[in-house]
Design a protein around this nucleic acid. Structure first.
Length: 438
DNA sequence: TCTGGGGTCCTAGGACCC
DNA sequence: TCTGGGGTCCTAGGACCC
């Protein structure tokens, strides 16, 4: 078990940085990456942040910056980001003996037992990631994961906003190496809301109580925090005080639920296209399920109208239990479609639907059953069919083999999503690989 | 007039994360 | 006209049990 110190390596404005690797002309320009359907900004370059564009800002509210400030917007290219992430993670792993991949652009590194100057070592790793992948990142180091996370935030803020922190904390910030008075000065200059685990709500409550800085939060009595708030915040306070409460998780735990949900490219009212969409989402969810070696007991399906648009509201969901736990696409699709039939009502402009797989269990733990229907052979055969389907789709691409209920003609998928600004799959598709000229 | 105590399980909702 | 997707954990309250 890793006892710390810990590092957090985090790609700067990750999706934007991935795009810039292949389009260097975007350097220095305000750039945002948009969510599915080109709906809202999910990544922003520093220049875009400087324009005041907030995380999650709807595109239609910020697109005037394209004219006035040269803002460039790109559709999310998750295939590209996933591949760039793999490259960055394998280099970050060189910082210490253990690694926990926390999100697509972040990993914690356990530094227990690492000798020598950690700050210096982190600078070398940062520079290697930059040179080998083109992705700039920030590295924070601290005695607990929460402090490492905070250090990472400081490393980025010090770089992005000169004057906010001492300049030597930019890019790599090692809070564990700071003398006490300097550490307190840094914590005193950081708002509580910037702490990992303190969201908008709790930040408000803390501020009402006069707790505005991280230093003030760190000085609270943990027992009081537990009484007044929760064990979660208590843990955060202890971690800020330097007591590790959150361990490294090197092996990603199996998901406890799996969802596939999408907003439509435009509103859908009729049942048929809705059935197609839900069938497609259920298939995708089933693939993820088999990938982690689980079976599902209950399938939830939902659909709703836009929360932003006027008109009659509709928001319904239903849980459909499977007769027995399964990972079979056709059974899961069947359950989802049956559920949709139950909740469907005509006359609503639906904007989103989704399928969630609940009550997951490892596929080797399935409860034995007296085979009254004598379908054991069929179940085994279906298992082989699913395996064949996954192999083919892996080899020849998503959707090579699919259930017919998802609709056979892409062009007629009126529910399909809009993606008007997607860049090529530079690193994962032969025909998209960039060509270098001498 | 007077109405126990303790425990578990489930669900919905809140809060947080990226 | 146009507002993402996928998760986790905790807590409170209700149902139910002995």
């Amino acid at each position: 078990m890793s006892a710390g110190p810990f590092a957090l390596v985090d790609g700067n404005n990750f999706y934007v940085s991935c795009e810039r690797v292949f389009r260097p002309s975007l350097n220095g320009m305000p750039v945002v990456v948009l969510s599915n359907n080109d709906g809202c900004a999910i990544a922003r370059s520093n220049e875009a942040k400087a324009l005041g564009i907030k995380m999650g800002a709807p595109w239609f509210e910020i697109k005037h910056f394209a004219e006035s400030a040269g803002l460039v917007a790109l559709s999310a290219n998750f295939t590209l980001y996933g591949d760039m992430s793999d490259r960055m993670m394998s280099l970050a792993a060189g910082l210490g003996p253990t690694q926990e991949i926390y999100s697509i652009d972040e990993s914690f590194i356990g530094l227990d037992g690492v000798r020598g100057d950690l700050t210096d070592r982190a600078r070398k790793v940062r520079s290697r990631i930059l040179v080998w992948t083109g992705i700039p990142c920030g590295i924070g180091i601290g005695p607990t994961k929460t402090l490492a996370k905070l250090a990472n935030y400081i490393s980025k803020t010090a770089e992005r906003k000169p004057g906010s922190y001492p300049p030597e904390l930019a890019q790599v910030c090692n809070l564990a190496a700071l003398p006490r008075d300097e550490l307190e000065a840094v914590l005193g200059a950081t708002a509580v809301g910037d702490v990992w685990g303190v969201g908008r709500r709790i930040a408000e409550q803390l501020e009402e109580g006069g707790i505005r800085t991280v230093l003030e939060l760190a000085r609270l009595d943990p027992a009081t925090v537990r009484r007044r708030w929760s064990v979660v915040l208590e843990r955060t306070v202890r971690e800020l005080q330097g007591m590790p409460c959150v361990q490294m998780e090197e092996v990603p735990a199996a998901k406890k639920e799996i969802a596939h949900t999408r907003s439509f490219g435009r509103v859908v009212t009729a049942l048929e296209p809705l059935l197609e969409a839900v069938s497609e989402y259920a298939s995708r969810a089933a693939e993820k399920l088999r990938k982690q070696g689980s079976v599902v007991g209950n399938v939830l399906v939902f659909a709703h109208t836009s929360p932003y648009r006027p008109g009659p509201k509709y928001h319904r969901s239903v849980v459909v239990p499977l007769r027995r736990p399964s990972s079979d696409t056709s059974l899961i699709v069947h359950a989802a479609m049956a559920g949709l039939h139950q909740i469907y009502q005509p006359g609503f402009d639906l904007i989103k639907a989704g399928v969630m797989l609940l009550d997951l269990a490892p596929d080797y733990l399935v409860q034995g059953e007296l085979d009254l229907e004598d379908d054991g052979a069929e179940v085994a055969e279906r298992g082989r069919l699913m395996k064949a389907m996954d192999v083919l789709n892996n080899r020849f691409g998503k959707g090579t083999l699919q259930v017919a209920s998802s609709g056979l003609d892409d062009a007629h998928r009126e529910w399909g999503m809009r993606q008007e600004r997607r860049t090529p799959h530079y690193t994962t598709k032969i025909s998209d690989i960039p060509i270098a000229r001498a």
